[in-house]
Structures are given as structure tokens and as C-alpha cells.
Amino acid sequence: MKGIHFLVAVVLLALASSFASASDPASLQDFCVAIEQSDSETAVFVNGKFCKDPKLVTANDFFFSGFQNPRNTKNQLGSNVTLLNVDMIPGLNTLDISLARIDFAPNGLNPPHMHPRGTELLLVLDGTLLIGFVTSNPDNRLFTKVLNAGDVFVFPVGLIHFQFNVGHTNAVSISALSSQNPGLIVIANSVFGSNPPISANVLTKAFQLDKNVVTYLQQKF
């Protein structure tokens, strides 16, 4: 009987240890304002950034101005993404959050892309957007919806997603992302615009396209 009790205790401890390691530890300080390089012997290197001496921190380390201003969408895609991450607001360091403004011209597209380190919560401020994301293999299921001003949608971390302005006027959305630096992989750019290029033979077989088409796409990107 004692052996059974011991075994149960070991299993419970193992489960507790597993649960404890499944989430980030609680922060032991109020903030860790990022600086690019250490200019102090007391600076601490955390998550790719040095922490600024707390005594030297100011309100400006947590501040950004001009987010309300429209961005230039005169480009091939008709969209413009302004990302406020740890590089733009040093006070975001270690706080696991960032913000993005996306401006769309009519028919503007934020092309299929993914954020490897962050879930995205999108709020439409103006206009009408067709949005969607695709699940991972083997289903590759598309979840899509048309959003209007005031609507909110979630794109799970690491999944390919897009936003397309299907309205006749400009559109604007705001996204919160669950990482201070969520990362960005634009699918077409990564596949056809890699440096050096992926072998055309590989892409021809992967996409079941004529090799001339693959070569043309690589030249475009």
C-alpha cells in the first residue's frame, strides 16, 4: 500500500512540474525597458535586449505618437502595415504584446502571411474587410468572414492569414499581437523571393507549375 501511495505522489509531482514549466514565469520586476547595447555595468541582457537602468527610465520609453495618422497605400498591394513592437516602444520589452495599424486602399491586400510568435486580435475601425486564416495539415481548413467597422477577429499564432479590402473606400484596422516581436513571414515573398532563390525544380514540383511560370514568379519577387 505504501508503494502505491509513493507512486501516486511521484505522478502528482511530475504533473505539477509539467504544469509549472508550461507557462512563462511571472516577472520579478515592473518593466525591462530595452536598450540596444549596454552602456552600464549594471545592465541586464533579457530576451535579446539589454534592460535600461530603471532609474534612467522616462515616460517616453513607453510612448509613441502619430498612430492615428493615415499611411501611404500607393504600392502594388495597396496596403501599409505600421507595427509598434519592442523596437518602436522600448518599454514593451518582456511584456509579450505589440500593436499594428493596417491601412488599405480600395482593393488593398495584406497578403497571406503568418506570425510565428504571436496570436493576432484584429479590430476593424473603418471600411469592410474580407479576412481569413487556414488551419495546419492535414485539414488546411479555411475560416473566413467579412468584417465591418467595430468587428473583431482572431488569427491563431503561426497560422497563415490575410486581410482584403472589399469595400469602395479606404479601410483601417488595428491589431494586437501576443508578442513583443511576433515576427512576420509573407508566404509569397518567402517562397518566390528567398535569397538565394529556392531551386526552380523544387518549386515546380511543389506547386505543380510549369518551370517557366516559377521562374517568372521568382523574377517578380
Rank of each mutant, 00 (worst) to 15 (best):
I131A: 12
F67S: 11
L217Y: 06
G158Q: 02
V124K: 04
P196E: 06
A9W: 07
I174E: 02
V146F: 00
Q218G: 10
D103H: 04
H168K: 15
S98G: 07
S173H: 01
S199D: 15
F19Q: 13
G78L: 07
V33W: 01
A26R: 08
T128V: 14
E36Y: 03
F63I: 01
L147T: 00
K55F: 05
I4M: 09
D210C: 10
L121A: 12
L92C: 12
D139L: 02
S175L: 13
I131S: 10
L28D: 15
T73V: 15
I185T: 13
I198T: 09
D39N: 07
N107Q: 14
A200N: 13
P182R: 11
A43W: 01
I174K: 09
A206M: 14
F153M: 09
S98L: 06
T94R: 10
V33C: 01
D39L: 08
F19V: 11
G158T: 07
E120I: 03
F19M: 11
N107R: 14
F153H: 00
V81S: 09
V44T: 13
D210V: 04
A171V: 06
H168V: 15
S17L: 12
I187H: 05
K2L: 14
V57M: 07
K220G: 00
T119F: 03
V166F: 06
A43C: 08
E120P: 04
F64T: 13
D53L: 10
D30G: 03
V213D: 11
Q180M: 13
F31V: 04
R141D: 00
D103M: 07
F62R: 05
I187D: 01
K2D: 14
L7A: 15
I89K: 08
L159R: 03
A149H: 05
V81P: 02
N93C: 13
S199E: 14
C32I: 07
S199F: 09
P116V: 08
V154G: 00
V152T: 08
S190E: 08
D53W: 02
L129E: 01
D126G: 00
M88G: 09
L159A: 01
F155L: 00
P182W: 05
S173G: 11
V10S: 12
F133T: 02
N85S: 15
N201E: 14
V8M: 06
S38D: 00
L129C: 06
K49V: 03
F63S: 12
D87V: 11
A9C: 14
F50Q: 01
K145T: 08
P197T: 12
I102M: 05
L209E: 05
G78W: 06
G132H: 05
K145D: 01
